[in-house]
C-alpha cells in the first residue's frame, strides 16, 4: 500500500485531479462521508487529506510515502525528504511587501512580520541586512498598516489583498508552487512504484 498525503483545500483538489488523470484514481475519495482516509485496494493506494503545512511532516516521518507540499513549506521547514517533481500548480511568489511609498532606512533594524521566519532570516542574512522578526500566524498585511512592522514577508498570489490595503510587492524572494515529495526510505523500498507515479504525473504537469 502506497500512502499519499494531500493538502486539504483547493490546491489539494486540483492535485487529486492530476493524480486521477495520471491513472491513480480512488473513487472512494468522492463519496460524501466523514472518513479521513480513502483506499483503492486494486491499485494499492491510500489517500488522506491533511493540513497543507503538515504534509511534509507526514512524509518525513514515513506516515505517508509521498505527498504534495508547497515549496514555501519545504523552504521554511527544510524537511529531510526527496523533492521529485514540480507540479506547477498553486503558483505564487514569496515576496517582501510593504507600504507603496516605503523607502528602506539602512540606519535602522528592519522590522519584518511573517509566518516564514526561516525564509525571511535567510533572505535578509544573504543581503547582510540586520532584521527583527515579528512572528505572526495570519493577517500579516495588517502589521505594516498598524506600524507593527516595516515590511512583511509573505506569499503573494494575485496581489489583490495588498492592493486593497495600499501595500505593494517590494521584492520577490522566490517563486512557489506545489511539489511532489517522497520519504527517503520509502523511495528505497517502493522505488519502482514511486518512479512510475512521477513519470505519469509529469505528463499531467502544464508548463
Amino acid at each position: 500500500m502506497l500512502n499519499i498525503a494531500l493538502p486539504k483545500g483547493r490546491l489539494g483538489e486540483k492535485v487529486l485531479g492530476m493524480f486521477e488523470r495520471a491513472g491513480f484514481e480512488c473513487p472512494a475519495i468522492h463519496e460524501e462521508n466523514r472518513r479521513l482516509f480513502f483506499e483503492n485496494e486494486a491499485l494499492g493506494l491510500r489517500y488522506f487529506w491533511v493540513k497543507p503545512s503538515d504534509v511534509s511532516i507526514y512524509v518525513e516521518r514515513g506516515a505517508a510515502d509521498i505527498g504534495v507540499a508547497g515549496k514555501d513549506i519545504l523552504l521554511e521547514y527544510a524537511p529531510d525528504v526527496y523533492e521529485l517533481l514540480d507540479l506547477n500548480v498553486g503558483r505564487c511568489r514569496m515576496c517582501v511587501a510593504g507600504p507603496k511609498s516605503y523607502r528602506d532606512d539602512l540606519g535602522r533594524t528592519l522590522r519584518v512580520a511573517t509566518k516564514f521566519s526561516n525564509i525571511a532570516s535567510r533572505y535578509y542574512s544573504s543581503l547582510g541586512r540586520d532584521i527583527d522578526i515579528i512572528p505572526l500566524n495570519g493577517s500579516i498585511e495588517l502589521a505594516p498598516i498598524l506600524g507593527l512592522s516595516d515590511v512583511i514577508v509573505d506569499i503573494v498570489e494575485t496581489g489583490t489583498t495588498l492592493k486593497e490595503n495600499d501595500l505593494a510587492v517590494l521584492e520577490t524572494i522566490v517563486p512557489i508552487s506545489a511539489r511532489l515529495i517522497a520519504n527517503k526510505a520509502s523511495f528505497v523500498f517502493h522505488k519502482t512504484r514511486i518512479e512510475a507515479l512521477v513519470r505519469a504525473l509529469a505528463q499531467e504537469v502544464e508548463t
Partner: peptide, 9 residues
C-alpha cells in the same frame, strides 16, 4: 542503510 519500518536511514 535502510530497514523496512524505519522512515529514515
Amino acid at each position: 542503510g535502510y530497514v523496512p519500518g524505519v522512515p529514515s536511514g
